[in-house]
């Protein structure tokens, strides 16, 4: 499976993103931020890469601030 990660400005948004995605049955997980990507709260959300647009619009609707979606190499 190809994964991506979403970065957030703070842990509040990371936790909200995790909860709202799981409520929709999406298989996401909070993981430590990969070294080559920077972030502040230390965690990011790992998502199935193919679900990125679904998740992006869901999180926008749930007022989750994001700092970018990256392909996880």
């Amino acid at each position: 499976m190809v994964y991506g990660v979403i970065l957030f400005p703070s842990i509040y948004f990371a936790l909200r993103a995790e909860k709202k995605s799981k409520e929709k049955g999406l298989s996401v997980r909070l993981i430590p931020v990969p070294r080559h990507l920077s972030s502040d709260c230390g965690v990011c959300l790992r998502i199935p890469w193919e679900e990125r647009e679904v998740i992006r619009s869901l999180l926008k609707e749930e007022k989750v601030k994001m700092e970018g979606i990256h392909l996880l190499e």
Binding site: I11, L15, P32, V33, G42, V43
Partner: peptide, 14 residues
């Protein structure tokens, strides 16, 4: 909470 990114820090933030 939310300072370190490890398991317990995430749990506290949760």
């Amino acid at each position: 909470p939310g300072r370190s990114g490890h398991l317990l820090s995430i749990e506290a933030a949760r």
